[in-house]
Amino acid sequence: MKNCIACGMPMKKESDFAMGDTKKDYCVYCARPDGSMQSFEEKKQGLINFTIKTQGLEKGVAEKAVANMMSKLPAWQEYFQK
């Protein structure tokens, strides 16, 4: 089983993978309509909006929580190098 490099979601079945392609390292939710992986900014904004929508967090808190999550994912390491 793989985990999505961009959001950490476990990818167990074909439909979890972008375009149903099990060779891809990212999931269906981190892919653009053309199958390519979303950019750092796209993913970050999407996650912030989602966190606010589903948990009602204050924007600043949501931004920090998302940054914390993304900093641990392989796809975004270059954005968090100290």
Binding site: L47, T51, T54, A65, N68
Partner: peptide, 16 residues
């Protein structure tokens, strides 16, 4: 605390 928020995000993702 941020890890805790992200833990709830996993739940809220499926719940949503």
């Amino acid at each position: 605390k941020f890890v805790f928020i992200n833990m709830q995000s996993v739940v809220s993702f499926h719940f949503n």
